[in-house]
Design a protein around this nucleic acid. Structure first.
Lengths: 120, 120
DNA sequence: GACGTAAAGGCAGATATCTGCTTATTATTC
DNA sequence: GAATAATAAGCAGATATCTGCCTTTACGTC
């Protein structure tokens, strides 16, 4: 799905928005957690497989909107679970969320104007 | 399956024997690799699920026949795969294999004697 | 030899992340 | 407005390890 340079696809926007929300309780999040966060909201249909999500996370990191690191290996060992890659929103990422939100708002206003002019 | 104290169950013996073989190419092995090693030999029926294997590995470690460590987290990151827990046979473990082999041999000799006495 | 019990085995699924291949969708080009 | 090119999404499965619950098996006891 070819994209306008600099633009974000819906899943990427959803991830960044969820990252903002998750950030309230913890600076970092991991992919599996993000999957649940997205699934818990009405965006469930966005995520049929994890592959899609992990690739989107990779793209966002490459774009510089997210950064990631592997957690201290002693933690998964202690909790006997696989290691997590911990992501956090960069300043650029937070900015992108704001931009996307403004763009969505202006599209909403445009639709509203249109509805007023052409009521059915 | 209650066990005679100090004795090993068949799966544990199979693991230790395979560990001896794997050791020829590398000091350490990991669970998934062991699963394939056991599956590749005729012991496939021993291993329907991984759970059984991982629990046996845990027991062997607790008994001191194996020791384990987590691999350097940079390796799975580079190879983009989950971290492995690396096991190696201890001296005690190698000894246990030898003991088990001797026990098996002496049982085999006993059977042979029996067959000679009672031929059908 | 029957019987109770401790522990191994089996089954199912959770936890995390990643990749290869095909399909769908979008932006650009003409 | 149709064709093309690029790439995101979907599907399937691999890679590793672990746990909870139920069933089976073998050891000891009586």
């Amino acid at each position: 799905m070819r994209r306008k340079p600099g633009a974000l696809v819906p899943l990427e926007i959803a991830i960044c928005r969820a990252a903002l929300i998750l950030r309230r309780r913890d600076e970092e999040f991991h992919g599996y957690e993000m999957a649940r966060a997205l699934g818990a909201e009405a965006d469930a249909r966005l995520l049929t497989a994890y592959g899609t999500l992990y690739r989107a996370l990779g793209r966002l990191e490459k774009m510089g909107l997210l950064k990631s690191r592997w957690e201290d290996p002693r933690i998964p060992a202690r909790e006997s679970r696989p290691s997590r890659r911990l992501y956090s929103l960069t300043a650029l990422g937070a900015e992108a969320v704001a931009t996307a939100r403004r763009a969505a708002d202006s599209r909403a206003r445009a639709r509203k104007r249109l509805r007023r002019l052409v009521p059915a």
